[in-house]
Computed example of a mutant assay.
Amino acid sequence: MTATPPAGQKSGLALFFTVTFATTWAFWLTAIALGGSPMSFPTVIPYLLGGFGPVIGAIVIRARRARLRQSVPAHTVRLRLSTRLFWVPLLLVMAPATVLAGALLAHLLGDPAVSLTAGQSLIATMGGPVPFVVSMLVAGPLAEEPGWRGTAYPRLRASLNRVQASLVLGAVWAIWHLPLFFISGTVQSNFGLISWSGLLFTLSVIPMALLTGYAYERAGVVASIAVHFGVNATMALLGVSSPLTQALILAVQSIVVIALLAWQRDSRAEPRVHTAPPLHQAIK
């Protein structure tokens, strides 16, 4: 008989998604109503706060788990310095490499050459390299990964294998981003929801969910943060906007994650099975 996730674990997942979406969309819908640039007052306040919906959801779930004295989900991955930490820099290099490879392939097929001009302008606008790195780290990786990978992913893994869990989470993650298409001045708004760039941005969340899910299983939330940061920062530095470049980055990331998943066997893909104890133990 296969094991089923405890009711508390299921309700915890539902509560996480409810809090995350309610928090994020309430703030982002407020930003839409206020109008103006997402970096202008007062729109900037709900715009920035909305990005923290997943981490707020994670805090609520952890507080609930502590109150109910529930155990840590079975598929939670903890960072072990002795065996896992070395994966973080490797993944941090791999993530930007997928973006750069896609951009170089796009150039070979006719897109403009890879340039850091847009990135240099962005860094100058933000006040220098340090503010750029901090903003790229906080807005996205730190605001989201403790929720998506650190909280939702292990609970999904209770009943799904790693590919299924990442695909489900990727679809949810893509829907979560939708209000950004209606906040004037965001990258998503500049793409447009009904456009090739908008469609490719939405689709690109799926391989990103697989990559960050793989990273999480390798070395926990720190690794998924590294992958998320690496991709976001490189996309910003290269000023990626061409549909061809977007499509090739998506393709490269898909190939890379397929290779990684094929290389590392999913030892926890099968549902756990409870078996009866031997007779001599049962009668003790």
Rank of each mutant, 00 (worst) to 15 (best):
A3S: 12
P5E: 11
P6G: 13
A7E: 09
K10Y: 08
G12I: 03
L15Y: 08
F17N: 02
T18K: 07
T18D: 02
T20I: 08
F27E: 00
T30P: 02
G35R: 12
P38V: 04
P38N: 12
P42C: 13
P42L: 01
V44R: 10
I45C: 03
P46V: 09
G51S: 08
P54R: 06
I59M: 15
V60H: 05
V60L: 11
R65S: 13
R67G: 12
Q70S: 14
P73W: 08
T76D: 11
L85Q: 12
V88E: 03
L90S: 07
L100K: 04
L100G: 11
G102L: 02
A103N: 08
H107K: 10
H107G: 14
D111R: 08
A113V: 07
L116I: 06
L116N: 06
Q120E: 15
S121Q: 15
S121K: 11
T125G: 11
M126N: 04
V130R: 06
M136E: 05
L137C: 06
L142G: 05
A143M: 04
E144Y: 00
P146V: 05
W148Q: 03
R149Y: 13
Y153R: 11
L156P: 06
L167C: 09
A174N: 05
L178T: 15
L178I: 14
F182H: 09
I183S: 01
T186G: 06
L199V: 13
V205F: 02
I206W: 02
T212E: 06
T212Y: 01
R218T: 00
R218L: 14
A219V: 09
G220K: 05
V221N: 04
V222E: 12
V222K: 00
V227L: 13
F229A: 09
G230W: 04
G230V: 04
N232L: 06
S242E: 13
P243A: 03
P243D: 14
A247I: 02
L250D: 04
V252M: 04
V256G: 04
L261Y: 15
A262S: 12
A276T: 11
P278Q: 08
L279N: 07
H280T: 09
A282P: 08
